[in-house]
Amino acid sequence: MTIHFYAADEVPYGCFSNFSDHGFDLDGAWWPTSEHYFQAQKFKGNRHADLIRRARTPLRAAELGRDSSKPLRRDWERVKDDVMRRAVVTKFRAHADIRDTLLSTGEEKIVEDTTTDHYWGRGRTGNGKNMLGRILVRTRNQLHAELTAALHGGSRRPRR
C-alpha cells in the first residue's frame, strides 16, 4: 500500500504537508511551518529570508520564496534537499502527535500527491521524484531508530 498526502487539512496525513501548522525552532528562530523554513533558506542571510519567516501563511511564504526578482543563494540546487531534510526531521521531533502519525505508517511508501511538482511530488505523469515523500520515509526510519535506541538504553551491550 502507498500513503498519499497533499493538503495540510487532510486527516490523518495532512501533517506530512509543509503547509501543516506545526512550527519549530531551528537555526535560532521560530518557524511557523516547514514551508516557511524551506522558502527562507533560499535567501539565507538577507532581509528577504526574515520577511518569509514572518509571512502570515505558508502560502504567502511560498509566494515570497518563489519571487523570481530575488536572487537565490548560489548553492541552492546543491543544498535544497538537505534543507528540506532538516526542516522535516525538526518538525517531527518537535511534535509527538505527528511523529506518532509518521511512525504509524510502518514500511509504507509515502507520496506527495501533487500533479504540479515533479521534483517534490509525484508530478503530472505520476513518475516524479517524490523527494518530499522520500524524505518523510527517511525521517520515519531515523525517528524509529532513535526511539528504538532510547528504549534499549542506546542499544549498547555491556562489556565483558
Score class of each variant (00 low, 15 high):
residue 72 L to M: 08
residue 129 K to E: 07
residue 145 A to V: 12
residue 104 S to W: 06
residue 54 R to M: 12
residue 4 H to R: 15
residue 34 S to W: 03
residue 86 R to I: 02
residue 160 R to F: 09
residue 116 T to C: 08
residue 1 M to D: 09
residue 127 N to W: 05
residue 14 G to N: 06
residue 52 I to H: 04
residue 1 M to W: 06
residue 100 D to P: 03
residue 21 D to V: 14
residue 143 L to H: 10
residue 99 R to K: 05
residue 73 R to Y: 02
residue 123 G to T: 07
residue 48 H to P: 03
residue 37 Y to M: 07
residue 7 A to Q: 10
residue 114 T to H: 04
residue 113 D to Y: 12
residue 28 G to P: 10
residue 9 D to A: 05
residue 14 G to F: 10
residue 120 W to T: 05
residue 124 R to S: 11
residue 105 T to E: 02
residue 51 L to K: 14
residue 138 R to A: 13
residue 98 I to H: 13
residue 124 R to M: 09
residue 89 V to H: 00
residue 79 V to E: 06
residue 29 A to Y: 06
residue 93 R to Y: 10
residue 6 Y to V: 07
residue 116 T to N: 11
residue 158 P to W: 14
residue 93 R to Q: 13
residue 35 E to H: 02
residue 128 G to P: 00
residue 105 T to I: 11
residue 120 W to G: 07
residue 25 D to S: 12
residue 5 F to H: 07
residue 96 A to E: 09
residue 137 V to I: 15
residue 106 G to L: 13
residue 22 H to P: 09
residue 80 K to A: 05
residue 104 S to Y: 03
residue 11 V to N: 09
residue 53 R to Q: 01
residue 47 R to N: 08
residue 158 P to H: 12
residue 104 S to P: 02
residue 144 H to D: 08
residue 51 L to S: 09
residue 76 W to I: 03
residue 17 S to L: 10
residue 33 T to M: 00
residue 83 V to W: 01
residue 3 I to E: 01
residue 57 T to I: 15
residue 62 A to G: 10
residue 44 K to Q: 14
residue 159 R to S: 00
residue 23 G to D: 00
residue 19 F to V: 06
residue 74 R to M: 10
residue 40 A to H: 00
residue 1 M to N: 07
